[in-house]
Design a protein around this nucleic acid. Sequence first.
DNA 1: GTTTAACCCTGCACGC
DNA 2: TGCGTGCAGGGTTAAA
Length: 277
Amino acid sequence: MPELPEVEVVRTALDKEISGKKISEIDIRSPRMIRRHASKKEVADMVTGSKVTSVDRRGKYLLLRLDNDEVLVIHLGMSGRLERSTSRKALDKHTRIIIKFGAALHIRFIDPRTFGELFVSQADELEGVPELSHIALDPLADAFTWLSFSGLVESRKVKLKSLLCDQAFVSGLGNIYSDEVLWTAGLLPDRRSDTLTAQEMRRLYRAMQEVLTDAVKAGGTTLADEAYRNLAGEPGSFQDQLKAYGQEGKACRRCRNPIVRGRWGNRSTYYCERCQV
DNA sequence: GTTTAACCCTGCACGC
DNA sequence: TGCGTGCAGGGTTAAA
């Protein structure tokens, strides 16, 4: 399930690979992936023949900016990945969309569960797009300061797990990294945000930046049953550094108490009952 | 304002 | 072996 670190790793590689190149064709094999649009032709007309000027990221969304002032937006959903390829390589059966830059460079959007999405928006209308309009500051951005963070935390009265996964509060975290951030900060997932001391809030802020930065450096997380790969098809290695997520029954690396698995809505959440408070 | 559950979808593990 | 069931989860939405 790609979260901020995985999307950032893909963004960096994609920017290097396709910036300055012209889209020769877009092959939409699964119309479900462009559900915001009426037809494949509508998407093709907006992007074909345009040059990519840069690749940005907004939360978990990739933004391919084009020289015709359109932006091609991609969300990888739960099981989606982008793969650098060519016209000669055999297709994965879950290849949903192929963005072609001539025969020698294809970017394939592969997504078994089809929770991913691709749509096109005019650059000046991007802020008003429902998927993007509510997305909060990026925790790795310079503007994400301690002051802005603490003010936001104090204004809410929700469980920390919900807060960290709320894209309108802070963008890019999902189930894996919210568990890792909470373990690192020593705070329980169901601890209420309005009960944190200044010191705990500071720990949470630091943990968020530390975990996400380390995960980007490690190339993201590739779990055994998950599809995440970088643009070259290689897995990340942050799964070797996970302290909480998926570690049920294993000794906590801080206090040796077994990590437990709880429920958060209809999802799992992993934590240490002893050293997270 | 907050919480909970359902929905979208497919592959896989498991039990019978 | 083959079938049915449950689970996994990001984001959105509706209901409580």
